[in-house]
Design a protein around this nucleic acid. Sequence first.
DNA 1: TTGCATCCGGTACCCGGGTACGGGCTTACC
DNA 2: GGTAAGCCCGTACCCGGGTACCGGATGCAA
Lengths: 139, 139
Amino acid sequence: MRSGQIAAAAGVNPQTLRYYERRGLLPEPHRTLGGHRVYPAEAVTVLRVIKAAQRLGFTLDEVADLLEAGRHRHGPDAGLAARAATKLGEVEAKIADLQVIAGQLRAAVQAGCDDIVACAVSGHCPVPFDGIARTDAKA
Amino acid sequence: MRSGQIAAAAGVNPQTLRYYERRGLLPEPHRTLGGHRVYPAEAVTVLRVIKAAQRLGFTLDEVADLLEAGRHRHGPDAGLAARAATKLGEVEAKIADLQVIAGQLRAAVQAGCDDIVACAVSGHCPVPFDGIARTDAKA
DNA sequence: TTGCATCCGGTACCCGGGTACGGGCTTACC
DNA sequence: GGTAAGCCCGTACCCGGGTACCGGATGCAA
């Protein structure tokens, strides 16, 4: 199959295939004599795997790692399960962070604040104007 | 106070002040004869407000709106409370989405999957390889 | 008045995940 | 064998939120 067909079958922009190839997510496919890429049908599966992993919160670099780990498998804990556990921790941290934020938004709604600057000056507002010390739980 | 002092007091890169000014978050300050910016002390408060709003999940454009709404106030529901309620909905949607993802990660960990591609081929894996139909709950 | 820190403006670059464009070549079908 | 669709590669651009670099001008204190 050629690139356009694979892209259509996976619901992906054709340019994205070349992008993923550059990023090491897709192996370099065979070429026709004229230089056009020719993919095996399994490439669609790989694309779906990539999309699923992205959806789970893995970055493209992590997905590349994951695919690489699958190809020539390392020790027991380099596989999907271990990495999923790590990612789960990140996602849970992110959820916890968002729950704090949701609580603060709820408080702000209940307090009926109108002008944030005024809120910051008079200390009645529940929005935490101090201590915004970048407690980022990224990703 | 000059830009460097304000920036230091707010814990922000001096370049960020000019950036915020371009983005309409900070009003254009007075200038010395030589063209250097001179800020009133309240500018630090505005910066802290910006940081707090960002932390609550507002984009810079939304923060600019919020500040603008404070300056010359519109109707009753253009203020912080209404926008916070909207943002709260977004945050809750994002949390719900992340909880789905966390559940899938947990399932993958429990299933002890090793190779994602193999998982995708044999349907035992709980990871949803199909139906990744961009159910994005953005921001 | 001299010296050094700071600020000016404009432009370019960073991250992550793609998408778009342009000129030229292949492939496929009739 | 013609013609159109599809693909090639390289490069530039998009989003959001900044950060870095540059040469030149200013501010402030000794």
